[in-house]
């Protein structure tokens, strides 16, 4: 054991006492000065920014990892912003129905309610309502149904002259001359 320690010490002494010789530094000086001059001439804004942001990281792989992570974060942010803008544009292009018109129609039938609102200073809020396709379909179906029934009713009245005359007289009595049979 002692012998192997002795051998180890002698090997380490051998390496310690043998300084690696560089020789002339002229080649290194020339290369370094050339590189510095080249960097000075070809200063790229991006390289300066990278040096400014990551110059504190001497270890190559740490610096490269930080640069890669930063680039990925920026790309992800831009992509997200693109998606958000696309969604906003889509929603902006959707049709909007203003409910205030329907509300004012209803107040014709509930005139007292309107009077109360005016007395107490309350205002009817204007609301925008978006209706779905299903609601639109239901509405159209109702209108079609109503038109069909109205047509059937008119046909019935036309077939019976006495009935027609009776209804006309009644309408005249009630002063509903706008409706013509």
């Amino acid at each position: 054991m002692e012998k192997s320690d002795e051998k180890l010490d002698r090997v380490i002494n051998l390496l310690r006492n043998t300084k690696p010789l560089l020789g002339s530094t002229v080649d290194i000086e020339r290369e370094v000065i050339n590189e510095i001059s080249k960097k000075h001439q070809n200063r790229l804004v991006i390289s300066d920014i990278i040096d400014f942001l990551f110059g504190w990281a001497y270890i190559g792989w740490v610096r490269r990892s930080l640069i890669t992570a930063s680039v990925l974060l920026v790309v992800f942010f831009v992509w997200q912003q693109g998606i958000i803008i696309k969604q906003i544009n889509y929603l902006s292009s959707q049709p909007v129905i203003v409910e205030s018109e329907a509300r004012s129609y209803l107040t014709d039938f509930s005139g007292n309610k309107m009077m109360l609102f005016k007395l107490f200073g309350n205002k009817l809020p204007a609301q925008n309502v978006t209706i779905s396709k299903k609601q639109m379909d239901t509405l159209l179906e109702s209108v079609n149904d109503l038109q069909t029934k109205y047509k059937d009713l008119i046909d019935l009245i036309e077939e019976d002259p006495e009935l027609k005359k009776y209804i006309e007289n009644k309408l005249t009595e009630l002063n509903r001359t706008k409706i013509k049979l």
């Binding site: 690696p20 560089l22 080649d27 290194i28 290369e31 370094v32 510095i36 040096d51 001497y58």
Partner: peptide, 14 residues
């Protein structure tokens, strides 16, 4: 080793 020395001196300058 010489390459490392060159890179070192460039870093020193910067």
């Amino acid at each position: 080793a010489k390459d490392v020395v060159q890179e070192t001196m460039i870093t020193v300058w910067q």
